[in-house]
């Protein structure tokens, strides 16, 4: 039956070319073929291997990983014997939870300002994107002064200390506010102390928001103006909905960026274990971390997605 069909088809096909759609989809495969091969060899395969390591005690012998002692012990050990790990995990989560909204608000604020017309805009813009170029490299570590714990404070620490030396409370006293609650003062100091990191970490987000702001249609602006909207109302009712898809993108980017940066404590533990040749253990810790990052991302994305306004096309 099948044979017959094939034969019949062959007869027809020899006269008729494959359909346009089919041909196009084949070309589609052609375009992604190179990446597909590489993705299997350089991404999926290592990922699976890494996942396998996490269940074993590993020992690199002669280029092959010798895997012994199958089980979940690596995962259990990560929580029970290594007390640093749990602590680092909590601190990273906390840090990200504080940092993300700050970076978001800050970058929206800066992007709105940079979107206005004023003299020297090109200069200011290029200054704001400078961190994108510099901050990914080892230079930032020297700038941050954490190359070694020696008595020297790098640029960032020096800068923060400029603010932190009780400047905040002095300013408050100058204005006439005395005895403000310690907690509030601590909070203000935490923010001012973080200003350097805040500015240096939000280059990409500013870029994203700026591009979104430039996509707001002129007609929307005109309509709002005719209706007599103040710029405050305009921001909340027009700008924010328009850039909300980018808010989602930036939230995801910020969270991922903060989770995978090499100087967060969990990553450091994972990397140090890997350099001690405990690959299985480090892989297990990395996968736990990954699962948590994934869950956090999913929750946040779902939550933010509720407020995202998509223009109906």
């Amino acid at each position: 039956m099948k044979n017959k069909n094939v034969k019949n088809n062959k007869n027809i096909k020899s006269k008729k070319k494959p359909s346009y759609e089919r041909k196009k989809s084949l070309y589609g495969y052609g375009f992604i073929a190179l990446w597909f091969v590489g993705m299997i060899y350089f991404f999926i395969l290592p990922l699976i291997k890494c996942f396998r390591y996490s269940f074993y005690d590993t020992k690199p012998i002669n280029g092959k990983m010798e895997l012994t002692n199958f089980g979940f012990h690596n995962y259990i050990n990560a929580f029970t014997t290594n007390t640093d790990y749990l602590q680092a995990l909590v601190s990273v989560l906390k840090d990200t939870a504080i940092k993300t909204p700050l970076i978001l608000i800050f970058s929206i604020f800066v992007a709105t300002i940079l979107n206005q017309k004023f003299r020297g805009r090109t200069f200011v813009r290029s200054v704001f994107f400078l961190p994108v170029i510099i901050a990914t490299g080892p230079v930032i570590e020297i700038i941050n002064g954490n190359m070694s714990s020696g008595g020297y404070a790098g640029g960032s620490e020096q800068f923060s200390s400029m603010f932190q030396t009780d400047l905040v409370s002095q300013v408050l006293e100058f204005i006439g506010v005395y005895g403000i609650s310690d907690k509030l003062e601590m909070a203000i100091q935490a923010v001012t102390g973080q200003i350097f990191n805040l500015v240096w970490n939000s280059g990409i987000q500013i870029l994203l928001f700026l591009s979104a702001l430039q996509n707001i249609s002129v007609s929307a602006k005109e309509a709002a103006q005719i209706e007599g909207a103040t710029s405050w109302e305009f921001f909340w009712k027009v700008t924010l909905p328009y850039i909300s898809p980018m808010i989602l993108a930036s939230v995801v980017y910020t969270i991922v960026d903060s989770f995978i940066s090499t100087d967060n404590p969990v990553m450091q533990i994972v990397l140090s274990k890997a350099s001690e040749w405990q690959h299985g253990y480090s892989a297990a810790m990395a996968w736990i971390y990954f699962a948590i990052v994934g869950i956090v991302l999913a929750i946040v994305a779902l939550f933010v997605n509720k407020f995202v306004y998509y223009e109906v096309e």
Binding site: C50, I260, A274
Partner: peptide
């Protein structure tokens, strides 16, 4: 997924490869 996974995870297996 490739954007999200840090290269640190896959480096060791790739190193062996």
């Amino acid at each position: 997924f490739m954007i999200i996974v840090p290269p640190q995870i896959t480096t060791i297996p790739i190193f062996l490869q």
